[in-house]
Write a protein that binds this DNA or RNA. Structure first.
Length: 499
RNA sequence: CGCGGGGUAGAGCAGCCUGGCAGCUCGGCGGGCCCAUAACCCGCAGGUCGUCGGUUCGAGUCCGACCCCCGCAACCA
Protein backbone atom coordinates (compact mmCIF):
# COMPACT_ATOMS: atom_id res chain seq x y z
CA UNK A 1 0.00 0.00 0.00
CA UNK A 2 1.48 3.32 -1.02
CA UNK A 3 0.61 6.88 -0.18
CA UNK A 4 -0.79 9.46 -2.56
CA UNK A 5 -0.74 13.15 -1.80
CA UNK A 6 -2.67 15.29 -4.26
CA UNK A 7 -3.42 19.00 -4.11
CA UNK A 8 -5.53 21.47 -6.01
CA UNK A 9 -4.45 25.08 -6.26
CA UNK A 10 -5.70 27.10 -3.34
CA UNK A 11 -8.20 29.51 -4.78
CA UNK A 12 -7.90 33.24 -4.42
CA UNK A 13 -11.24 34.01 -2.86
CA UNK A 14 -12.01 37.54 -3.81
CA UNK A 15 -15.21 36.25 -5.37
CA UNK A 16 -17.64 33.36 -5.27
CA UNK A 17 -16.63 29.88 -6.39
CA UNK A 18 -17.17 29.38 -10.06
CA UNK A 19 -16.74 26.75 -12.66
CA UNK A 20 -13.10 27.63 -13.21
CA UNK A 21 -12.20 26.50 -9.72
CA UNK A 22 -14.72 23.67 -9.66
CA UNK A 23 -13.17 22.00 -12.68
CA UNK A 24 -9.71 21.17 -11.33
CA UNK A 25 -11.20 20.40 -7.94
CA UNK A 26 -13.51 17.76 -9.38
CA UNK A 27 -10.72 16.32 -11.49
CA UNK A 28 -8.49 16.07 -8.44
CA UNK A 29 -11.29 14.43 -6.54
CA UNK A 30 -11.58 11.78 -9.23
CA UNK A 31 -7.89 11.01 -8.89
CA UNK A 32 -8.10 10.96 -5.11
CA UNK A 33 -11.07 8.60 -5.13
CA UNK A 34 -9.41 6.32 -7.64
CA UNK A 35 -6.33 6.00 -5.48
CA UNK A 36 -8.40 5.35 -2.38
CA UNK A 37 -10.28 2.63 -4.21
CA UNK A 38 -6.95 1.13 -5.19
CA UNK A 39 -6.08 0.99 -1.53
CA UNK A 40 -3.56 3.82 -1.44
CA UNK A 41 -3.40 5.98 1.61
CA UNK A 42 -4.59 9.26 0.16
CA UNK A 43 -4.29 12.81 1.38
CA UNK A 44 -6.27 15.21 -0.76
CA UNK A 45 -5.85 18.90 -0.10
CA UNK A 46 -7.63 21.97 -1.31
CA UNK A 47 -8.05 25.37 0.26
CA UNK A 48 -8.17 29.10 -0.09
CA UNK A 49 -5.63 31.85 -0.55
CA UNK A 50 -6.87 34.66 1.65
CA UNK A 51 -4.19 37.31 1.86
CA UNK A 52 -3.15 40.13 -0.42
CA UNK A 53 -4.12 43.55 -1.58
CA UNK A 54 -6.96 42.52 -3.84
CA UNK A 55 -8.77 40.81 -1.03
CA UNK A 56 -8.28 43.73 1.33
CA UNK A 57 -9.69 45.91 -1.41
CA UNK A 58 -12.65 43.66 -2.15
CA UNK A 59 -13.42 43.43 1.55
CA UNK A 60 -13.43 47.17 1.89
CA UNK A 61 -15.73 47.50 -1.06
CA UNK A 62 -18.10 45.05 0.61
CA UNK A 63 -17.91 47.05 3.85
CA UNK A 64 -16.28 44.23 5.77
CA UNK A 65 -13.04 43.55 7.50
CA UNK A 66 -10.76 41.30 5.47
CA UNK A 67 -11.18 38.52 8.00
CA UNK A 68 -14.99 38.67 7.89
CA UNK A 69 -14.81 38.75 4.15
CA UNK A 70 -12.63 35.66 3.77
CA UNK A 71 -14.55 33.81 6.46
CA UNK A 72 -17.71 34.18 4.43
CA UNK A 73 -16.16 33.34 1.11
CA UNK A 74 -14.17 30.37 2.28
CA UNK A 75 -17.41 29.03 3.75
CA UNK A 76 -18.99 29.42 0.31
CA UNK A 77 -16.18 27.44 -1.25
CA UNK A 78 -16.47 24.70 1.30
CA UNK A 79 -20.20 24.56 0.72
CA UNK A 80 -19.67 24.28 -3.01
CA UNK A 81 -17.13 21.48 -2.64
CA UNK A 82 -19.46 19.77 -0.27
CA UNK A 83 -22.29 19.84 -2.78
CA UNK A 84 -19.95 18.56 -5.45
CA UNK A 85 -19.08 15.69 -3.12
CA UNK A 86 -15.41 16.60 -3.03
CA UNK A 87 -13.61 14.19 -0.72
CA UNK A 88 -10.81 16.47 0.43
CA UNK A 89 -9.10 15.48 3.67
CA UNK A 90 -8.40 19.05 4.62
CA UNK A 91 -9.22 22.58 3.55
CA UNK A 92 -6.26 24.81 4.22
CA UNK A 93 -6.88 28.50 4.77
CA UNK A 94 -3.92 30.83 4.60
CA UNK A 95 -5.37 32.82 7.47
CA UNK A 96 -5.39 29.78 9.75
CA UNK A 97 -2.98 29.59 12.66
CA UNK A 98 -1.55 26.32 11.41
CA UNK A 99 -0.63 27.92 8.10
CA UNK A 100 0.76 31.10 9.61
CA UNK A 101 3.13 29.33 11.96
CA UNK A 102 4.22 27.05 9.15
CA UNK A 103 4.98 29.96 6.85
CA UNK A 104 6.92 31.74 9.55
CA UNK A 105 9.00 28.64 10.14
CA UNK A 106 9.64 28.16 6.47
CA UNK A 107 10.71 31.76 5.97
CA UNK A 108 13.01 31.54 8.98
CA UNK A 109 14.51 28.39 7.59
CA UNK A 110 15.11 30.06 4.23
CA UNK A 111 16.76 32.97 5.99
CA UNK A 112 18.93 30.67 8.09
CA UNK A 113 20.02 28.82 4.96
CA UNK A 114 21.10 32.07 3.35
CA UNK A 115 18.47 32.02 0.65
CA UNK A 116 17.07 35.45 1.48
CA UNK A 117 18.73 38.81 0.98
CA UNK A 118 17.66 42.41 1.32
CA UNK A 119 17.07 44.51 -1.76
CA UNK A 120 15.09 47.27 -3.35
CA UNK A 121 11.84 46.72 -5.17
CA UNK A 122 11.12 49.32 -7.81
CA UNK A 123 7.82 49.88 -9.47
CA UNK A 124 4.93 52.15 -10.20
CA UNK A 125 2.93 52.85 -7.10
CA UNK A 126 -0.61 54.16 -7.16
CA UNK A 127 -1.54 56.16 -4.05
CA UNK A 128 -5.23 55.53 -4.62
CA UNK A 129 -4.79 51.77 -4.87
CA UNK A 130 -2.12 51.77 -2.19
CA UNK A 131 -0.41 49.17 -4.30
CA UNK A 132 2.12 48.63 -7.01
CA UNK A 133 0.67 48.55 -10.47
CA UNK A 134 2.26 47.22 -13.61
CA UNK A 135 2.56 49.15 -16.83
CA UNK A 136 0.10 46.75 -18.37
CA UNK A 137 -2.57 47.88 -15.91
CA UNK A 138 -2.26 51.49 -16.90
CA UNK A 139 -4.51 53.22 -19.37
CA UNK A 140 -2.83 56.14 -21.05
CA UNK A 141 -0.18 56.12 -18.34
CA UNK A 142 -2.81 56.50 -15.63
CA UNK A 143 -4.35 54.18 -13.14
CA UNK A 144 -7.72 53.30 -14.64
CA UNK A 145 -9.57 53.38 -11.30
CA UNK A 146 -8.09 56.56 -9.83
CA UNK A 147 -7.15 58.36 -13.04
CA UNK A 148 -3.87 59.45 -11.54
CA UNK A 149 -0.35 59.00 -12.75
CA UNK A 150 1.41 56.49 -10.51
CA UNK A 151 4.81 57.33 -9.10
CA UNK A 152 7.93 55.31 -9.59
CA UNK A 153 9.04 54.45 -6.10
CA UNK A 154 11.20 51.86 -4.49
CA UNK A 155 10.85 50.10 -1.19
CA UNK A 156 12.96 47.75 0.82
CA UNK A 157 12.11 44.13 0.14
CA UNK A 158 13.49 40.76 0.95
CA UNK A 159 14.37 38.69 -2.05
CA UNK A 160 14.63 35.00 -2.58
CA UNK A 161 17.89 33.93 -4.12
CA UNK A 162 16.28 31.94 -6.89
CA UNK A 163 19.25 31.94 -9.23
CA UNK A 164 21.29 29.82 -6.89
CA UNK A 165 18.87 26.90 -7.24
CA UNK A 166 18.09 27.08 -10.94
CA UNK A 167 20.77 24.75 -12.34
CA UNK A 168 19.86 21.95 -9.96
CA UNK A 169 16.17 22.53 -10.57
CA UNK A 170 16.64 22.41 -14.32
CA UNK A 171 18.39 19.10 -13.89
CA UNK A 172 15.49 17.73 -11.85
CA UNK A 173 13.01 18.72 -14.51
CA UNK A 174 15.21 17.46 -17.29
CA UNK A 175 15.65 14.05 -15.73
CA UNK A 176 12.02 13.72 -14.74
CA UNK A 177 12.75 13.75 -11.04
CA UNK A 178 10.21 16.55 -11.08
CA UNK A 179 7.65 15.63 -13.72
CA UNK A 180 5.78 18.38 -15.49
CA UNK A 181 2.73 17.24 -17.36
CA UNK A 182 1.38 17.28 -19.99
CA UNK A 183 4.58 17.05 -22.00
CA UNK A 184 4.24 20.35 -23.83
CA UNK A 185 4.05 22.18 -20.53
CA UNK A 186 7.34 20.64 -19.54
CA UNK A 187 8.91 22.03 -22.69
CA UNK A 188 7.42 25.40 -21.89
CA UNK A 189 9.01 25.40 -18.45
CA UNK A 190 12.37 24.25 -19.76
CA UNK A 191 12.10 27.15 -22.18
CA UNK A 192 11.89 29.51 -19.23
CA UNK A 193 15.35 28.47 -18.12
CA UNK A 194 16.77 29.68 -21.39
CA UNK A 195 15.45 33.14 -20.66
CA UNK A 196 16.46 35.20 -17.71
CA UNK A 197 14.62 34.20 -14.56
CA UNK A 198 15.14 36.85 -11.93
CA UNK A 199 15.05 36.50 -8.18
CA UNK A 200 11.68 37.30 -6.74
CA UNK A 201 10.72 39.25 -3.70
CA UNK A 202 9.10 37.37 -0.88
CA UNK A 203 7.99 40.37 1.14
CA UNK A 204 6.12 43.61 0.74
CA UNK A 205 6.14 46.65 2.96
CA UNK A 206 3.19 48.36 1.33
CA UNK A 207 0.80 45.54 2.10
CA UNK A 208 -0.95 45.14 5.41
CA UNK A 209 -3.16 42.09 4.89
CA UNK A 210 -0.74 39.22 5.23
CA UNK A 211 1.61 37.31 7.46
CA UNK A 212 4.20 39.51 9.20
CA UNK A 213 7.77 38.69 8.26
CA UNK A 214 9.39 37.17 11.36
CA UNK A 215 12.65 39.08 11.07
CA UNK A 216 11.15 42.39 9.97
CA UNK A 217 7.61 42.95 11.15
CA UNK A 218 7.18 46.07 9.07
CA UNK A 219 6.88 43.72 6.13
CA UNK A 220 4.46 41.05 5.15
CA UNK A 221 5.20 37.76 3.42
CA UNK A 222 4.39 38.28 -0.21
CA UNK A 223 1.59 36.27 -1.68
CA UNK A 224 3.41 33.54 -3.51
CA UNK A 225 5.68 32.62 -0.68
CA UNK A 226 2.58 32.63 1.50
CA UNK A 227 0.26 30.73 -0.82
CA UNK A 228 2.58 28.06 -2.14
CA UNK A 229 3.56 27.05 1.36
CA UNK A 230 0.06 25.75 1.95
CA UNK A 231 1.06 22.42 0.49
CA UNK A 232 3.36 21.76 3.41
CA UNK A 233 1.74 23.77 6.18
CA UNK A 234 -1.44 21.76 5.71
CA UNK A 235 0.53 18.64 6.54
CA UNK A 236 1.82 20.35 9.62
CA UNK A 237 5.27 21.28 8.42
CA UNK A 238 7.37 21.50 11.57
CA UNK A 239 4.45 20.82 13.87
CA UNK A 240 2.96 17.47 12.91
CA UNK A 241 6.07 15.63 11.97
CA UNK A 242 4.45 12.28 11.42
CA UNK A 243 1.87 13.40 8.91
CA UNK A 244 4.40 15.55 7.12
CA UNK A 245 6.93 12.75 6.82
CA UNK A 246 4.32 10.35 5.64
CA UNK A 247 2.86 12.42 2.83
CA UNK A 248 5.51 14.86 1.67
CA UNK A 249 6.59 15.18 -1.13
CA UNK A 250 3.34 15.63 -3.02
CA UNK A 251 2.66 13.03 -5.66
CA UNK A 252 1.03 15.65 -7.81
CA UNK A 253 0.07 19.30 -7.67
CA UNK A 254 -2.87 19.92 -9.98
CA UNK A 255 -2.57 23.50 -11.21
CA UNK A 256 -3.99 25.85 -13.79
CA UNK A 257 -1.72 26.70 -16.65
CA UNK A 258 -1.47 30.30 -15.47
CA UNK A 259 0.44 29.32 -12.36
CA UNK A 260 2.86 26.82 -13.85
CA UNK A 261 5.88 29.03 -13.35
CA UNK A 262 5.19 29.44 -9.67
CA UNK A 263 4.71 25.73 -9.16
CA UNK A 264 7.49 24.49 -11.39
CA UNK A 265 10.15 27.06 -10.65
CA UNK A 266 9.56 29.19 -7.56
CA UNK A 267 8.05 26.53 -5.36
CA UNK A 268 10.55 23.71 -5.96
CA UNK A 269 13.38 26.19 -5.56
CA UNK A 270 12.01 27.32 -2.22
CA UNK A 271 11.73 23.73 -1.11
CA UNK A 272 15.29 23.01 -2.16
CA UNK A 273 16.46 26.04 -0.24
CA UNK A 274 14.67 24.74 2.83
CA UNK A 275 16.24 21.29 2.46
CA UNK A 276 12.92 19.70 1.56
CA UNK A 277 12.16 17.25 -1.26
CA UNK A 278 10.47 18.65 -4.36
CA UNK A 279 7.07 17.43 -5.54
CA UNK A 280 7.05 14.39 -7.79
CA UNK A 281 4.78 15.91 -10.42
CA UNK A 282 2.97 19.05 -11.42
CA UNK A 283 0.04 18.57 -13.73
CA UNK A 284 -1.35 21.58 -15.57
CA UNK A 285 -4.94 21.47 -16.75
CA UNK A 286 -6.31 23.65 -19.52
CA UNK A 287 -8.68 26.55 -19.49
CA UNK A 288 -11.96 26.75 -21.23
CA UNK A 289 -13.96 29.22 -23.13
CA UNK A 290 -17.73 29.24 -22.98
CA UNK A 291 -19.49 29.12 -26.32
CA UNK A 292 -16.28 30.14 -27.98
CA UNK A 293 -15.75 33.17 -25.81
CA UNK A 294 -13.65 33.81 -22.81
CA UNK A 295 -15.75 33.44 -19.72
CA UNK A 296 -16.34 36.74 -18.04
CA UNK A 297 -18.83 38.76 -16.08
CA UNK A 298 -18.93 41.45 -18.71
CA UNK A 299 -19.93 38.98 -21.41
CA UNK A 300 -22.41 37.44 -19.02
CA UNK A 301 -21.55 33.84 -19.86
CA UNK A 302 -20.21 32.83 -16.48
CA UNK A 303 -21.30 29.35 -15.47
CA UNK A 304 -22.18 29.10 -11.82
CA UNK A 305 -21.53 25.66 -10.35
CA UNK A 306 -24.49 26.07 -8.00
CA UNK A 307 -26.78 26.44 -11.00
CA UNK A 308 -25.37 23.34 -12.64
CA UNK A 309 -25.87 21.44 -9.41
CA UNK A 310 -29.45 22.57 -9.24
CA UNK A 311 -30.15 21.53 -12.80
CA UNK A 312 -28.24 18.26 -13.06
CA UNK A 313 -27.37 17.14 -9.56
CA UNK A 314 -23.98 16.38 -8.09
CA UNK A 315 -22.88 13.37 -10.08
CA UNK A 316 -24.02 14.60 -13.45
CA UNK A 317 -22.37 17.97 -12.88
CA UNK A 318 -19.10 16.23 -12.15
CA UNK A 319 -19.43 14.05 -15.21
CA UNK A 320 -20.46 16.81 -17.56
CA UNK A 321 -17.65 19.15 -16.60
CA UNK A 322 -15.00 16.50 -16.98
CA UNK A 323 -16.23 15.08 -20.25
CA UNK A 324 -16.15 18.26 -22.30
CA UNK A 325 -12.54 18.06 -23.41
CA UNK A 326 -9.30 16.30 -22.47
CA UNK A 327 -7.92 17.23 -19.07
CA UNK A 328 -4.71 19.12 -19.68
CA UNK A 329 -5.84 20.89 -22.80
CA UNK A 330 -7.84 23.98 -23.51
CA UNK A 331 -11.35 23.49 -24.68
CA UNK A 332 -14.70 25.04 -25.26
CA UNK A 333 -17.82 24.42 -23.25
CA UNK A 334 -21.21 24.89 -24.77
CA UNK A 335 -23.98 25.36 -22.27
CA UNK A 336 -26.42 23.88 -24.76
CA UNK A 337 -24.30 20.75 -24.93
CA UNK A 338 -24.85 19.84 -21.29
CA UNK A 339 -28.45 18.74 -21.65
CA UNK A 340 -27.71 16.82 -24.84
CA UNK A 341 -24.82 15.02 -23.27
CA UNK A 342 -26.68 14.37 -20.07
CA UNK A 343 -29.45 12.67 -22.00
CA UNK A 344 -27.21 10.66 -24.25
CA UNK A 345 -24.45 9.52 -21.90
CA UNK A 346 -26.23 9.39 -18.58
CA UNK A 347 -29.95 8.91 -19.17
CA UNK A 348 -29.82 6.82 -22.35
CA UNK A 349 -26.43 5.33 -21.59
CA UNK A 350 -25.66 4.44 -18.02
CA UNK A 351 -29.10 4.93 -16.50
CA UNK A 352 -30.88 2.94 -19.16
CA UNK A 353 -28.31 0.15 -19.13
CA UNK A 354 -28.62 -0.29 -15.38
CA UNK A 355 -32.35 -0.27 -15.70
CA UNK A 356 -32.59 -2.84 -18.48
CA UNK A 357 -30.09 -5.24 -16.94
CA UNK A 358 -31.59 -5.17 -13.48
CA UNK A 359 -35.09 -5.62 -14.75
CA UNK A 360 -33.99 -8.68 -16.75
CA UNK A 361 -32.51 -10.18 -13.62
CA UNK A 362 -35.79 -9.47 -11.89
CA UNK A 363 -38.02 -10.70 -14.65
CA UNK A 364 -36.17 -13.87 -15.64
CA UNK A 365 -34.49 -14.92 -12.40
CA UNK A 366 -36.58 -13.36 -9.68
CA UNK A 367 -33.82 -10.96 -8.69
CA UNK A 368 -31.13 -13.57 -8.03
CA UNK A 369 -27.78 -13.70 -9.81
CA UNK A 370 -27.58 -16.77 -12.09
CA UNK A 371 -24.55 -19.08 -12.36
CA UNK A 372 -21.18 -17.54 -13.29
CA UNK A 373 -19.91 -17.26 -16.82
CA UNK A 374 -16.69 -15.83 -18.25
CA UNK A 375 -17.64 -14.81 -21.74
CA UNK A 376 -16.82 -11.11 -21.38
CA UNK A 377 -13.89 -11.50 -19.04
CA UNK A 378 -11.14 -10.53 -21.47
CA UNK A 379 -12.93 -7.64 -23.05
CA UNK A 380 -13.68 -6.13 -19.67
CA UNK A 381 -10.09 -6.64 -18.53
CA UNK A 382 -8.93 -4.70 -21.55
CA UNK A 383 -11.22 -1.81 -20.73
CA UNK A 384 -9.95 -1.84 -17.16
CA UNK A 385 -6.45 -1.52 -18.48
CA UNK A 386 -7.27 1.58 -20.46
CA UNK A 387 -9.10 2.94 -17.42
CA UNK A 388 -6.24 2.49 -14.97
CA UNK A 389 -3.60 3.52 -17.51
CA UNK A 390 -5.46 6.77 -18.01
CA UNK A 391 -5.85 7.56 -14.33
CA UNK A 392 -2.29 6.61 -13.44
CA UNK A 393 -1.32 9.33 -15.89
CA UNK A 394 -3.88 11.81 -14.56
CA UNK A 395 -5.97 11.48 -17.71
CA UNK A 396 -9.36 11.92 -16.16
CA UNK A 397 -11.09 12.09 -19.52
CA UNK A 398 -9.53 8.76 -20.46
CA UNK A 399 -11.37 7.15 -17.58
CA UNK A 400 -14.62 8.55 -18.94
CA UNK A 401 -13.87 7.09 -22.37
CA UNK A 402 -13.34 3.70 -20.76
CA UNK A 403 -16.66 3.99 -18.95
CA UNK A 404 -18.42 4.80 -22.21
CA UNK A 405 -16.77 1.85 -23.89
CA UNK A 406 -17.88 -0.53 -21.18
CA UNK A 407 -21.40 0.82 -21.41
CA UNK A 408 -21.36 0.22 -25.17
CA UNK A 409 -20.02 -3.27 -24.71
CA UNK A 410 -22.94 -4.04 -22.42
CA UNK A 411 -25.60 -2.55 -24.67
CA UNK A 412 -24.16 -4.30 -27.70
CA UNK A 413 -24.09 -7.61 -25.85
CA UNK A 414 -27.79 -7.31 -25.12
CA UNK A 415 -28.61 -6.81 -28.79
CA UNK A 416 -26.44 -9.68 -29.97
CA UNK A 417 -27.92 -12.15 -27.53
CA UNK A 418 -31.53 -10.99 -27.41
CA UNK A 419 -32.39 -12.24 -23.94
CA UNK A 420 -36.11 -11.75 -24.57
CA UNK A 421 -35.90 -14.50 -27.23
CA UNK A 422 -33.70 -16.73 -25.10
CA UNK A 423 -36.34 -16.48 -22.43
CA UNK A 424 -38.60 -18.48 -24.70
CA UNK A 425 -36.04 -20.86 -26.14
CA UNK A 426 -32.90 -21.42 -24.11
CA UNK A 427 -32.92 -21.03 -20.35
CA UNK A 428 -29.25 -22.04 -19.92
CA UNK A 429 -27.95 -19.53 -22.40
CA UNK A 430 -30.21 -16.90 -20.90
CA UNK A 431 -28.64 -17.37 -17.50
CA UNK A 432 -25.15 -17.01 -18.97
CA UNK A 433 -26.11 -13.83 -20.76
CA UNK A 434 -27.75 -12.28 -17.74
CA UNK A 435 -24.84 -13.17 -15.50
CA UNK A 436 -22.46 -11.46 -17.90
CA UNK A 437 -24.65 -8.40 -18.05
CA UNK A 438 -24.90 -8.13 -14.28
CA UNK A 439 -21.16 -8.51 -13.94
CA UNK A 440 -20.60 -5.83 -16.58
CA UNK A 441 -22.90 -3.59 -14.60
CA UNK A 442 -20.86 -4.25 -11.48
CA UNK A 443 -17.66 -3.26 -13.29
CA UNK A 444 -19.39 -0.19 -14.62
CA UNK A 445 -20.37 0.78 -11.11
CA UNK A 446 -16.84 0.31 -9.91
CA UNK A 447 -15.37 2.44 -12.67
CA UNK A 448 -17.96 5.08 -12.00
CA UNK A 449 -17.00 5.40 -8.38
CA UNK A 450 -14.21 7.93 -8.93
CA UNK A 451 -16.27 10.11 -11.23
CA UNK A 452 -19.80 9.69 -9.91
CA UNK A 453 -19.61 8.26 -6.43
CA UNK A 454 -23.30 8.38 -5.57
CA UNK A 455 -24.34 6.68 -8.78
CA UNK A 456 -21.65 4.06 -8.31
CA UNK A 457 -22.89 3.29 -4.84
CA UNK A 458 -26.47 2.97 -6.03
CA UNK A 459 -25.51 0.62 -8.83
CA UNK A 460 -23.28 -1.51 -6.65
CA UNK A 461 -25.86 -1.62 -3.88
CA UNK A 462 -28.41 -2.90 -6.37
CA UNK A 463 -26.04 -5.83 -6.91
CA UNK A 464 -25.54 -6.41 -3.22
CA UNK A 465 -22.04 -4.90 -3.24
CA UNK A 466 -22.35 -2.38 -0.42
CA UNK A 467 -18.87 -2.73 1.00
CA UNK A 468 -16.94 -2.60 -2.22
CA UNK A 469 -14.38 -0.04 -1.17
CA UNK A 470 -13.18 -2.07 1.74
CA UNK A 471 -12.02 -4.81 -0.60
CA UNK A 472 -8.84 -5.62 -2.41
CA UNK A 473 -8.84 -3.71 -5.66
CA UNK A 474 -7.21 -6.35 -7.85
CA UNK A 475 -9.79 -8.84 -6.79
CA UNK A 476 -12.59 -6.34 -7.04
CA UNK A 477 -11.73 -5.38 -10.59
CA UNK A 478 -11.31 -8.95 -11.75
CA UNK A 479 -14.06 -10.93 -13.44
CA UNK A 480 -16.56 -13.03 -11.60
CA UNK A 481 -16.87 -11.34 -8.23
CA UNK A 482 -20.64 -11.42 -8.37
CA UNK A 483 -21.70 -14.65 -6.64
CA UNK A 484 -24.56 -16.82 -7.73
CA UNK A 485 -27.86 -16.18 -5.96
CA UNK A 486 -26.85 -12.72 -4.79
CA UNK A 487 -30.00 -10.67 -4.49
CA UNK A 488 -30.43 -7.88 -7.03
CA UNK A 489 -32.74 -4.93 -6.83
CA UNK A 490 -34.16 -2.70 -9.52
CA UNK A 491 -33.17 0.95 -9.59
CA UNK A 492 -35.47 3.56 -10.95
CA UNK A 493 -34.68 7.01 -12.21
CA UNK A 494 -30.91 6.98 -11.94
CA UNK A 495 -30.73 9.76 -14.49
CA UNK A 496 -34.21 10.87 -15.54
CA UNK A 497 -34.29 12.35 -19.01
CA UNK A 498 -34.35 16.08 -19.28
CA UNK A 499 -36.74 17.43 -21.88
C1' C B 1 11.45 39.34 -33.72
C1' G B 2 7.42 38.74 -26.10
C1' C B 3 5.01 33.94 -24.96
C1' G B 4 1.54 30.11 -25.66
C1' G B 5 -2.71 27.40 -27.92
C1' G B 6 -5.28 26.37 -32.33
C1' G B 7 -7.43 25.82 -37.89
C1' U B 8 -9.46 17.68 -39.34
C1' A B 9 -17.54 15.95 -41.57
C1' G B 10 -23.24 20.37 -39.91
C1' A B 11 -21.32 21.07 -34.29
C1' G B 12 -17.53 19.75 -30.62
C1' C B 13 -13.03 17.12 -30.53
C1' A B 14 -9.03 12.85 -31.01
C1' G B 15 -5.11 11.43 -34.21
C1' C B 16 0.64 14.71 -35.18
C1' C B 17 5.83 13.47 -30.59
C1' U B 18 7.15 7.80 -33.05
C1' G B 19 4.79 9.05 -41.31
C1' G B 20 1.44 3.45 -43.36
C1' C B 21 -6.78 2.26 -44.51
C1' A B 22 -9.06 9.75 -41.38
C1' G B 23 -11.37 8.18 -36.09
C1' C B 24 -14.81 9.51 -31.72
C1' U B 25 -19.27 11.93 -29.59
C1' C B 26 -23.59 14.79 -30.86
C1' G B 27 -26.75 15.95 -34.93
C1' G B 28 -29.03 14.18 -40.10
C1' C B 29 -30.98 10.01 -43.07
C1' G B 30 -32.39 4.72 -43.50
C1' G B 31 -33.20 0.00 -41.26
C1' G B 32 -33.69 -3.45 -37.04
C1' C B 33 -35.48 -4.59 -32.15
C1' C B 34 -39.19 -4.69 -28.12
C1' C B 35 -35.41 -6.42 -22.17
C1' A B 36 -34.99 -1.12 -20.86
C1' U B 37 -35.66 5.64 -18.84
C1' A B 38 -39.83 6.93 -26.52
C1' A B 39 -34.42 3.99 -24.34
C1' C B 40 -30.94 0.15 -27.34
C1' C B 41 -28.42 -1.99 -31.92
C1' C B 42 -26.88 -1.88 -37.19
C1' G B 43 -26.03 0.76 -41.67
C1' C B 44 -25.59 5.28 -44.78
C1' A B 45 -24.42 10.31 -46.07
C1' G B 46 -20.97 14.06 -44.93
C1' G B 47 -13.80 15.71 -44.81
C1' U B 48 -9.04 18.41 -51.36
C1' C B 49 -7.12 17.43 -42.58
C1' G B 50 -6.18 26.48 -43.16
C1' U B 51 -2.87 27.78 -47.90
C1' C B 52 1.51 27.07 -50.84
C1' G B 53 5.95 24.56 -51.38
C1' G B 54 9.63 20.71 -49.77
C1' U B 55 11.39 15.70 -47.90
C1' U B 56 9.55 10.62 -48.79
C1' C B 57 7.65 4.70 -52.14
C1' G B 58 4.01 7.09 -48.93
C1' A B 59 2.47 13.37 -45.31
C1' G B 60 -3.33 15.16 -41.27
C1' U B 61 1.49 13.52 -39.14
C1' C B 62 8.21 15.63 -40.64
C1' C B 63 10.64 20.54 -42.74
C1' G B 64 9.94 25.74 -44.65
C1' A B 65 6.99 29.97 -45.81
C1' C B 66 2.40 32.27 -45.48
C1' C B 67 -2.90 33.25 -44.04
C1' C B 68 -6.49 33.22 -40.24
C1' C B 69 -8.52 32.57 -35.11
C1' C B 70 -7.90 32.56 -29.77
C1' G B 71 -5.57 33.54 -25.06
C1' C B 72 -1.83 35.75 -21.87
C1' A B 73 -6.62 33.63 -17.87
C1' A B 74 -11.32 32.31 -14.45
C1' C B 75 -12.30 37.86 -12.76
C1' C B 76 -7.59 38.31 -11.70
C1' A B 77 -0.57 36.81 -7.07
Amino acid sequence: MSKFYITTPIYYINGEPHIGSAYPTIASDVLARYHRLKGDEVYFLTGSDEHGGKIAEAAEKAGKTPQEFVDELSAKFMECWDELNISNDDFIRTTSQKHKTGVVKLVEKLKANGAIYEGEYEGYYCQGCEAFVTEKDLVGGKCPTHLTVPQMISEKNYFFNLKKYLPELERKIDTGELKILPEHKRNEVLGLFKQEIGDFSISRSSLKWGIPLPFDESQVVYVWADALSNYITALGYDSDDEKFKKFWPADVHIVGKDIIKFHCVFWPAMLMAADLPTPKAVYAHGFFTVDGQKMGKSIGNVIDPFNLLKEFGTDATRYLLLSQFPFGQDGDIKASQFVIQYNSDLANGIGNFASRVLSMAEKYFGGAVPAKNNELKNQVAEIWKSYTDALENFQVDGAISAIRKLNQLGDGYVEINKPWELAKTDETRLSEVVYNLLEVLRHLGLMLYAVMPETAEKILASLGQQNFYAQNFDLLSSWGVLEQNTKTEKISGLFPRIQ
